[in-house]
Design a protein around this nucleic acid. Structure first.
Lengths: 122, 122
DNA sequence: CCTCTCGTCAACCAACCGGTTGAAAAAGAG
DNA sequence: CTCTTTTTCAACCGGTTGGTTGACGAGAGG
């Protein structure tokens, strides 16, 4: 597993079960068994999901006797938010510029054509 | 392909090549060939990536002779942003409440223990 | 000690993913 | 009609994923 952090976070949240676990962990920490209870898959499967979330940095685990309470680490969300917002803004900026270009071009001047500077005059 | 929209968007952006394509499409629309040029993979592979992005609703394609210009659809970003922000806020709210609880509990009252009501007195 | 609970590790399986190559479709250009 | 460009379709391949079952380790508790 050599993917970059951003890819790991996106991949971790691409699974609805894992997204649901994250959603529930925003309410309270939980043990593996507690987390597994609502889904009809084995506890081992949930344990695997938790590993994916942990590798993505979305979750951390401590220790309490045999139990391993799972805790949400919300900071990683920022990584995604930053990426998304950056390109969302860039896209919006692009559309704004496109509007300007269209507004400043009421005639049929061909796009990407040479500007109207006189070449070597005869 | 029966995954929910949110899963598709997250999965689509879990790949660095696809994220880079999205990033470049915020600058300008591009054809498949133009998009493929910077990466040293086949054009077919890029075509597959574009299909994933299209299925996720991140991208749309029109037609210009044999070319298929690719256009970024930034609205789907909102889907992710909403999900992320919702649970981020919820998590922050949770921590805030936890702080309150800790602040209102300066003594050593055991957590989750029975309230100090006298049991059946002897 | 034995036993029970909680969780992980290991092996396996079908399905999917990202990549390849080769062929074909779609449309302009000679 | 033929040739070239652009893109997609089809088949294939190795690696990963999400799931299973079975065994195991770590602790509480009789």
């Amino acid at each position: 597993m050599a993917a970059d952090p951003l890819s790991r976070v996106f991949a971790a949240l691409a699974d609805p079960t894992r997204r649901d676990m994250v959603a529930r962990l925003t309410v309270a920490d939980a043990t593996v068994g507690e987390l597994a209870e609502p889904y009809d898959v084995s506890v081992q499967a949930v344990s695997k999901h938790l590993r994916v979330l942990e590798d993505a940095g979305l979750v951390s685990r401590s220790r309490d006797a045999q139990r391993r309470p799972v805790h949400l680490e919300a900071e990683v969300f920022d990584l995604m938010t930053k990426w998304i917002e950056r390109y969302r803004r860039q896209a919006e900026e692009r559309y704004r510029r496109l509007d300007d270009v269209l507004r400043s071009m009421p005639d049929d001047s061909p796009p990407t054509a040479a500007p109207p500077e006189g070449g070597t005059p005869s």
